[in-house]
């Protein structure tokens, strides 16, 4: 087994361990904190009998460790429990919503990743000249406004004033791909703007870092042209940092989606989560929290594995 493979296996094992620890954290976060779930569901006027019944139903009376393992094993088998508010299976409710959320995030990623890398390269190429300054000014501005306000700003301008796209992003299965894309155009634009700023800044820093190293100078001095320098020397060394940047921002995208879905009343995971947090529907919150954490950890894991695999020192052991 080569050292690269060994590192990858170690990293994956670490990721799984982290996920397990996260599930413990989410579970304890909702179960052991001072706050009576039954009381908050039924309100202050609940009778003691009703409270006792609900506690029994929720299984709050069982020891926490036992409840945790029951929850975990059911979740591993795809059973996330039932929602307290409507008694429906959480797995079923999440199924279509998760694919809607991934649909939104997918299109945002498809647009923002190439654009960010291109603009990042542009900023490096014209470092300290006006394209670079313009790009950093725009990124500063878009970092300074919360996502939901960028959402309403675009909704006001594009949907209400210009009437190009609908202001509410409803999608369902009977729509064609074109209709769906038109319906999610504004949220995709908002998400793109939000991650673009971070991604561009980080790409710029990563490439500058590579371009300033000694071997690039050597390559230039031995007479290679700019294209050759980038293709043979800069690019292979920039893969790992760029993939890292992309993955970090995709992970960020997953969180940005939560707020944007609420703004555009898009039927995805984020809206489902926020809805049920205000209804204090703990099983739903736990399930959504676990899924978001899993996606986040998974993307970070991919970033690390790619950077291990793209490192020639590990691929060709001495």
């Amino acid at each position: 087994m080569g050292p690269a493979l060994k590192l990858v296996v170690q990293r994956v094992a670490l990721g799984l361990l982290l996920l397990l620890a996260c599930s413990v954290l989410i579970f304890t976060g909702t179960m052991i904190l001072p706050g009576d779930v039954a009381q908050s569901i039924l309100g202050q006027s609940a009778t003691p009998e009703a409270l006792a019944n609900l506690r029994e139903e929720l299984g709050v009376n069982d020891p926490p460790v036992q409840r945790y393992f029951e929850w975990l094993f059911n979740a591993l088998q795809g059973d996330l429990g039932t929602a307290l508010t409507n008694g429906r299976s959480i797995t079923e409710s999440i199924g279509s919503r998760l694919s809607n959320t991934l649909f939104l995030a997918f299109w945002a990623a498809i647009i923002s990743v190439p654009l960010a890398i291109f603009l990042g390269l542009l900023a490096v190429r014209y470092k300290d000249r006006w394209p670079d300054k313009l790009i950093s000014a725009v990124t500063l501005a878009s970092i300074s406004i919360p996502e939901f306000l960028i959402g309403y700003l675009l909704m006001y301008l594009v949907a209400v004033k210009l009437r190009w796209f609908p202001s509410v992003s409803m999608i369902n299965d009977s729509m064609t791909l074109g209709e769906k894309l038109s319906s999610i155009a504004i949220p995709v634009a908002v998400l793109t703007l939000v991650v673009l700023a971070h991604m561009m800044r980080m790409t710029r820093a990563a490439i500058l870092n590579v371009m300033q190293s000694a071997y690039i100078e050597t390559a230039e001095l031995k007479g290679l042209n700019m294209f050759q320098v980038i293709r043979r020397h800069a690019f292979p060394n920039a893969i790992a940092p760029i993939v890292n940047v992309v993955m970090l921002n995709l992970a960020y995208l997953v969180v940005g989606v939560v707020v944007i879905e609420v703004v555009f009343t898009y039927p995805g995971m984020g809206q489902y989560l926020v809805d049920h947090v205000s209804k204090r529907d703990v099983p739903v919150v736990q399930a959504c929290g676990l899924i978001f954490a899993a996606v986040y950890i998974g993307l970070n894991l991919i970033a690390d594995v790619v950077s291990i695999l793209s490192n020639p020192r590990l691929r060709h052991p001495k």
Partner: peptide, 16 residues
């Protein structure tokens, strides 16, 4: 390793 917003939402679902 858990996104801040998600973690805050999880905690706020049980806290007043």
């Amino acid at each position: 390793s858990i996104p801040t917003l998600i973690f805050a939402l999880v905690v706020l679902s049980v806290m007043p």
